[in-house]
């Protein structure tokens, strides 16, 4: 970890249009939760865990925040050519990558957890499952944030079109393919995050029943972080300046 790189990256990411945009998106679940409570229909615990937290927050907000921050920490610098000012220094590339990844993780986790906390509280206020579900989803999204950020950071080192490639992964692989072919859920960060949330919350199976078990989910997340993180370090060590640059 390198404090200077962390501070630099924070200044690169915070206080831009990107952040304003993310705050607006992070408010959406709360609006949705308010609308749901106002309508007074349905079981709050079931709706919150499957639709609001499991659907909107974990399936959309989490991967999109991870994509925005994960591809920005290095991808933007590589695009505009400033990455050289970090890479042409006698610092191990591992240190650069880990410092930057921590910033992406921190920002993603804060955005998603804050959004989830507010929206979840609105939706679940006064129910028995409030504490368990919120705790489960906060733990799971913090872990999921790291997994998404690591994978998308690796993606930004592999291709200049990481953002759209990440969108394809989120919408087509996690959204479409895992819905059609059950076996592919093992390779889906969304399902691992949901599995972990269900394991930590341990509420009734009638309320929230994710497809992956706790141990499997943890294993998938750890494997994703370890493999993508290791590959990203190797890729950054062997970073080559593009010919156009």
């Amino acid at each position: 970890m390198n404090g200077d790189i962390v501070r630099l990256t924070l200044r690169q990411l915070v206080g831009k249009r990107r952040t304003v945009f993310m705050v607006l998106v992070a408010l959406l679940p709360s609006v949705l939760a308010t609308a749901f409570r106002a309508s007074g229909e349905g079981d709050p615990a079931e709706w919150a865990s499957t639709q609001l937290l499991g659907g909107m927050v974990v399936a959309m907000l989490l991967p999109l925040a991870g994509l925005v921050f994960g591809t920005a920490i290095l991808g933007t610098e590589i695009d505009d050519g400033t990455a050289v000012y970090l890479l042409a220094r006698p610092i191990p590339r591992r240190e650069i990558l880990l410092s930057k990844l921590c910033v992406a993780w921190l920002l993603t986790a804060v955005f998603v957890a804050a959004s989830l906390l507010v929206a979840g509280t609105i939706a679940l206020e006064g129910t028995d499952e409030w504490g368990a579900l919120i705790a489960g989803f906060v733990v799971a999204t913090v872990a999921g944030s790291l997994a998404y950020c690591t994978v998308f950071t690796l993606l930004s080192l592999l291709t200049g079109r990481a953002f759209i490639a990440g969108l394809l992964y989120v919408f087509i692989w996690e959204g479409l393919v895992t819905a059609l072919f059950d076996g592919t859920r093992l390779l889906s960060l969304r399902h691992a995050t949901l599995g972990l949330a269900g394991y930590v919350a341990s509420v009734s199976r009638d309320t929230f029943d994710p497809e992956l078990g706790g141990a499997t989910s943890v294993a998938v997340l750890i494997l994703a972080v370890a493999a993508a993180g290791w590959l990203a370090v190797v890729k950054l060590q062997r970073f080559e300046i593009g010919e156009s640059g």
Binding site: R11, D80, G81, V84, Y85, A88
Partner: peptide, 14 residues
């Protein structure tokens, strides 16, 4: 890079 300084061609700075 302890002994080497590099001035890249591209203009960009932070």
């Amino acid at each position: 890079f302890r002994r080497v300084g590099l001035v890249p061609e591209r203009e960009a700075t932070y």
